[in-house]
Design a protein around this nucleic acid. Structure first.
Lengths: 135, 135
DNA sequence: AATGTTTTGTTATATTATAACAATGTGTAA
DNA sequence: TTACACATTGTTATAATATAACAAAACATT
């Protein structure tokens, strides 16, 4: 049943919930092994358990990977619909990362056509600069 | 001498030149250890020698890192001026990567202001989709 | 020639991520 | 409810990516 699968509520599994809660509570992006150390007391002992949960959470849009930092943050866009069209600002001093939700930006990028007239509904954009505090 | 330093021609060092040549001739992004294996016959034996050259080449804009792939491609923008404002399209099937040079896109992104009115002159954008051949 | 800087060479190690396999749990439909 | 498909877990081992620390050589100014 394709459609119900796609639309289905994602009840997180035990490990997924533990790891999502940790990332969601964090004020900064978390790296996989930082997560591992933090959840060892909860019985998650191996890197693979962490990576599997991270993969799933990324797939369903609950978290995003900051590619330039190999770190993960919870999605704070409207109900995590925007799993595949992400934009972030990253402070080069304090490493603060903020998810950007700008209708204008996402519209512009979703409609962008390359030289071959090709459009892309999936993208990841990382802006770098100095945040308010570090400026 | 600050100014001459900033503007100076980058005569590549021996290792930098070897590694740049390899990347420049490649039709696809190269990973660090793939580079290492390819240049061992030229006397570059250790990962660190590769990473140092890569760091420098990225810094001076001769190559770019494709963050989502941990791979490197030569810059094909007009004389590599655009070291810090990069955009790529990536085919999710064949992994072909193309650097996008669009005046409109770079203008839009350079002028983009976030909620705090903050602008960013440095960014990296990766589009994902299917290339012509794989569509 | 003296000086500061960059680059190199080298060994070791840290960090990030996946392979392979067996077992257990969960949702769904007959 | 039982059986089936599928997702998740647990585990050990290993692959892939990247940096630390230190000494020596090369290079570019003065």
């Amino acid at each position: 049943m394709r459609i119900s699968k796609v639309n289905k509520m994602h009840n997180l599994s035990k490990n997924q919930q533990i790891i999502f809660d940790l990332i969601d509570k964090s004020s900064e992006p978390l790296k996989a092994y930082a997560i591992l150390f933090n959840v060892q007391k909860k019985g998650i002992k191996a890197p693979l358990q962490v990576y599997r949960a991270l993969d799933k959470l990324v797939e369903i849009g609950k978290i995003h990977k900051i590619e330039s930092r190999n770190a993960f943050i919870a999605c704070h866009n409207s109900s995590c619909q925007v799993a595949k069209a992400t934009a972030f600002s990253i402070c080069e001093i304090c490493e603060k990362v903020t998810e950007i939700s700008s209708a204008g930006l996402s519209k512009y990028l979703a409609n962008f056509k390359d030289k071959d007239g090709m459009k892309y509904s999936k993208y990841n954009l990382e802006f770098f600069g100095l945040c308010k505090k570090c400026r």
